[in-house]
Amino acid sequence: MTIQQRHAKNRYYIWNNHVLSAVEPHYFSPTFWQQKNSIVGSSKGRNTAYFIDYEELQMVLRRYYRGGFVGKIFTDQFFLAPAHKSRAVQEFQLLQWMHEQGLPVPQPYAAFYERSGLFYRASILIERIPCAQDFFSFLLTKEAANMEREQQLTLWFNIGVAIQKLHAAQVYHSDLNCHNILLDNTRKVWLIDFDKCERRVGQTSPWKNENLNRLKRSLEKERSLHPSFDWHDIQWQALIQGYNDYTQSVPHFTPS
């Protein structure tokens, strides 16, 4: 991977030169991609992410927005910080490092920072995992409900393995929940949304358990809201077994 950087007046770009030969401001505008009929979908939460198919690239475009009360006033504006400390560039660099380590995360393509007075705005383009859906959506499907018990437990085990890979690399995920876990059409597990995430020290630090507890709370919350969102303690136990048993060779999970 060759990473390129460019400074312009009040603007900064960083991108993967193996994917994009150059970047321009309009690459980070949904309107530009709409005019090219390249937007094939979107994911709406606090931040809208646009799914883009352009030539041979499948990408996700995400702009950074504030949350909470402050976000109602400043929306996508952040108090001024150097480009390398902006949320977009930090997420790009963390994703780049994780991708180079072989972790199950999407590849970063480009990030954009623009200064305006005492504020900055930022966006990021990342790889879109083909034919993927988030774990929350998957658990609502008939496919999930009709899976054999061994298949179910193996899937949960593999999610535990993916999280342990992240933690073994000392990566803290600030919002590990069932929406930020993806399954592709081979049921490979991917982890996404690394805004405000970072590498931390401490092999047995409390933040690792806090990550797992946050994920469990998200599952419990969705189960309380959606009657068809069906999971049980034995599945969570399989996830914890995958997390605890992970080695570089990744053991085979055989449910009892």
Rank of each mutant, 00 (worst) to 15 (best):
S137N: 09
A162P: 08
A22G: 01
L212M: 07
Q203A: 09
N158R: 15
S38G: 14
K188F: 00
R11N: 12
H232K: 15
A111Y: 11
H173W: 03
I14F: 06
L155H: 07
V189Y: 01
L125Y: 06
I52D: 08
I73Y: 12
K208Y: 02
L166N: 02
F112K: 12
E198Q: 10
V250S: 00
A22P: 00
E143L: 09
N17C: 04
E148L: 07
L57F: 10
V250N: 02
W156A: 10
E222A: 08
L94E: 08
Q90W: 01
D53N: 15
E100L: 04
V189T: 05
E24N: 12
Y113A: 09
L94I: 11
E91Y: 05
T141A: 06
Q5M: 09
W97D: 12
H226P: 01
L225R: 15
L182Q: 07
G242Q: 03
G160E: 04
F253P: 05
E210F: 00
E198T: 09
I129E: 06
Y13L: 07
Q101H: 10
M59D: 10
A238I: 07
V70P: 02
H167Q: 11
S29Y: 12
P106G: 02
N146H: 15
E220N: 05
L215C: 01
P206H: 00
Y50M: 05
P130R: 09
Q107M: 13
F78V: 10
L118S: 10
F78H: 13
L125W: 07
N209D: 00
S43N: 08
H99L: 01
H18P: 00
A22Y: 10
M98D: 09
P106A: 03
F229Q: 06
N16M: 03
V23E: 04
Q101D: 03
S86W: 11
F119W: 14
A49Y: 05
Q58W: 08
N158Q: 14
A162W: 09
V89I: 15
